[in-house]
Every structure is written in structure tokens, then in C-alpha cells.
Nucleic acid binder design. Structure first.
Lengths: 97, 97
DNA sequence: CTCGTCACTTTCCATGTCGGAAAGTAGGGC
DNA sequence: GCCCTACTTTCCGACATGGAAAGTGACGAG
């Protein structure tokens, strides 16, 4: 009955995405490459996870041409911050923090 | 090249198992049925998750005949508590708690 | 002794997720 | 035009998951 897991979000919970959100929540924006290196995944894997976060409305992808090169930067949206905060709160509740 | 996630344990991270561990860490022992209801899963699903935790050496399953009925109770092992604690610490690190 | 029940276990199965490899795309630079 | 950077998307095999249903072991009833 108590199957109720109100703020448990599978999009956020998957390890790579949890890490991505954890990185982004601390900053305004971060470059694709920096996130990729911090998380330790390949371009394609990061791209796919970012896409999922983007489709969930949690991450905003910006492509800016800097020094004649397209740089992709990532940022959590307001909804992304809210979802992450709720998820972390839920993790704390579950883990009895 | 895999990212360095020292104490990130997939056996513990899966939602149902994280919940099971969260319940068990707070007590000495809990009945199978109580865990099943608290987590909100079916017998078969709980049985399968418990089996994984057991095979990882994290949970100890005890079957006791009480009032002429076999009752199964679950408890975290020392290793289970350690793994859960490490995982929670890692979650805190990742989520920036 | 046989049957039915309780309390899980295990099997079957259909779906979903994941990551690596490789091919594809877009915008400069030479 | 061709190459390079910086991602994207596709293809694919491996693995995880949950629901349904069949199976198991230990009683207790008849």
C-alpha cells in the first residue's frame, strides 16, 4: 500500500544522470566536454543522457559559437532544479538521513 | 575509462532495493510481508530483489516456524550495512549534500 | 493419507534501459 | 572540395525489471 514514492524520479535516479544533475546544480552552466569528463562517459553516452534530461524539461542545452567553434553548454532548468531537489529529498527520506 | 565512482553500488542503487535497505538499516530484523507492504511490491518481485541482496551478501534471510507457519524475516548483514552506508555517502557526495 | 492453504520461489515472457561502436551532421578553416 | 572539431543518431547485443502463473515445502483439516 505504501507503494507511494512521491518524488522518486527515474529520469534523475539513473547514476549518470544523477551525476550530471549533481554537477549542474552547483553551477549556472557547464560545458558539454566538462560534464563528459567529470562523469567519465563517452560523447555518445553523455549526449543520450542529456537528451533524456532535456526531454524531461530538466536541462537546457545552449549552443554558442565561441572563438569560431560551437560550444555546447548545459544548465539545469528551474524544473530540473526542483526535480533534483525533490529527488534528493526523497533519497534522504528513504535512506533515513 | 569508466568514471571513478568508488562506492557506487548498483545492487543497492536500484529503487526497490534502496528502499529495502533503507527499511532494514533502521531495524534489527523485519518480516518479509512487512517489507513487501512497505515497499509496495508483489511477493515475486520482493523475493527476486531480496535474492539479489542475499547473493551480494547484504541481506540475511531467516526462516522461522512461528505458530506453525513459516515466517521469513530479513536483516542486513554487516557487509550490507557497510555497503549501504558507503552508497549513501556516495549519494551525498554526488548530490552535494 | 489426501487435499487445501499459506508463504514465499522460480519460471516465463514482454518490455525497457544501457553503453560501445560506428556512421551521420553542422559549422568553420585551409 | 576536403578536413577537423564537436557533438548526434543509429545499430546492436547484453542485461534488468515487473507481472502472471506455476511450483515448493510445511502444516492442519477431514
Amino acid at each position: 500500500m505504501t507503494a507511494v514514492r512521491p518524488h522518486f524520479d527515474p529520469v534523475v535516479h539513473a547514476p549518470p544522470r544523477l551525476q550530471i544533475c549533481g554537477l549542474l546544480v552547483a553551477v549556472d552552466t557547464m560545458d558539454f566536454a566538462a560534464v563528459r569528463d567529470a562523469v567519465g562517459v563517452s560523447d555518445s553516452v553523455l549526449s543520450k543522457h542529456v537528451k533524456q534530461l532535456e526531454e524531461a524539461g530538466y536541462v537546457k542545452v545552449r549552443k554558442a559559437t565561441i572563438t569560431s567553434r560551437v560550444r555546447t553548454s548545459l544548465a539545469l532548468t528551474k524544473a530540473g532544479r526542483a526535480a533534483f531537489a525533490a529527488h534528493v529529498a526523497e533519497l534522504r527520506r528513504i535512506t533515513g538521513a
